[in-house]
Design a protein around this nucleic acid. Structure first.
Length: 281
DNA sequence: CTCCAGGCGCCTT
DNA sequence: AAGGCGCATGGA
């Protein structure tokens, strides 16, 4: 499929998703319980699956490869820090991820490094996910365990995956989601504030994880997660001489970066991660 | 060894 | 409302 201005590697490795595996020249992962290998060459992405597909809309939907990328970039504020972040990695994209996998992954993310999140999600999936056919006959792939599956597990089983204090949060959230009373498919029709309040009724989901979930599932493009990296980015790039509170930074993020504030946030996040060893620190 | 990680929930002021 | 602290675990 065509993929102009699409940096697949940066996108899959940018901390918005945690299950893609680099194979050197491509990436292997699972989308909607289908194993897929993605290889980018220039302005194209080639996809390989185990079974034939006549309709690839599920992949295009996930990759958001047909989104109005020029329009999104053009909606960012025309200030020096933002433009610098875009220049650093033009082609970074936001995916549209599965709701429960995104929610569960970010419940597991608190006070973990991205590498650790990947590891615990991998262990958890291999232990309790469904086996997914893949070309690696001796290395089967596993889906992210469904909310129904998680709801049937015990806290002890989850802790054994290395989840620590997050285990009861994931279990409680899975039970709420499996009950089906959350209106999880209507979050994109609500105001950001209402959607956030809805998600934050789940255990282990505060402001930051709620915003990650709402942004990375495509429900709320203005959601602007403020974590430790974004705090540093906003302080250094926009308020180098005055300390702002977390609340002030959240408010600034939502209002300063326009109708695609969350997209802008991902650029700032990536910019800080790439330059973490440079003089910017 | 210490410090910190894409935080949250709960308890004090 | 705002700030402090404990929580599991592993990497830097």
């Amino acid at each position: 499929m065509p993929a102009r201005d699409y940096d697949l590697a940066a996108t899959l490795d940018s901390g918005q998703t945690f299950r893609w595996h680099s194979t050197g020249n491509g990436w292997e992962g699972i989308i909607r319980n289908k194993w897929v290998r993605l290889v980018q060459s220039g302005d194209q992405i080639q996809a390989t699956t185990c079974t034939p597909h006549s309709n690839w809309s599920w992949l295009e939907d996930y990759l958001q490869s047909s989104s109005d990328f020029d329009g999104i970039i053009a909606s960012f504020p025309d200030d020096e820090p933002m433009q610098r972040a875009v220049r650093a990695c033009r082609g970074l994209r936001l995916l549209k991820q599965d709701c429960w996998q995104c929610l569960g992954s970010f419940i597991l993310s608190s006070t973990k490094q991205i590498l650790q999140i990947r590891r615990v999600v991998a262990t958890f999936s291999e232990r309790f996910g469904d086996a997914i056919p893949s070309p690696h006959s001796n290395l089967p792939s596993y889906s992210f365990p469904s909310a129904e599956t998680v709801a049937s597990l015990t806290e002890t089983e989850l802790r054994a995956c290395g989840m620590g204090f997050r285990a009861p949060y994931l279990l409680g959230a899975a039970q709420r989601v499996a009950d089906g009373a959350l209106a999880i498919d209507r979050l994109n029709t609500m105001s950001l504030q209402a959607a956030r309040e809805t998600v934050m009724t789940l255990p282990g989901v505060g402001r930051k994880i709620a915003d990650c979930f709402l942004l990375f599932t495509g429900a709320q493009p203005c959601a602007f997660p403020v974590d430790v990296w974004i705090t540093k980015a906003l302080q250094r790039l926009y308020f180098p001489t005055q300390n702002k509170t977390l609340k002030q930074l959240q408010q600034f993020g939502e209002t300063h970066f326009g109708p695609n504030a969350g997209y802008a946030q991902q650029y700032l996040f990536h910019y800080m991660r790439v330059h973490r060893r440079d003089s910017i620190n």
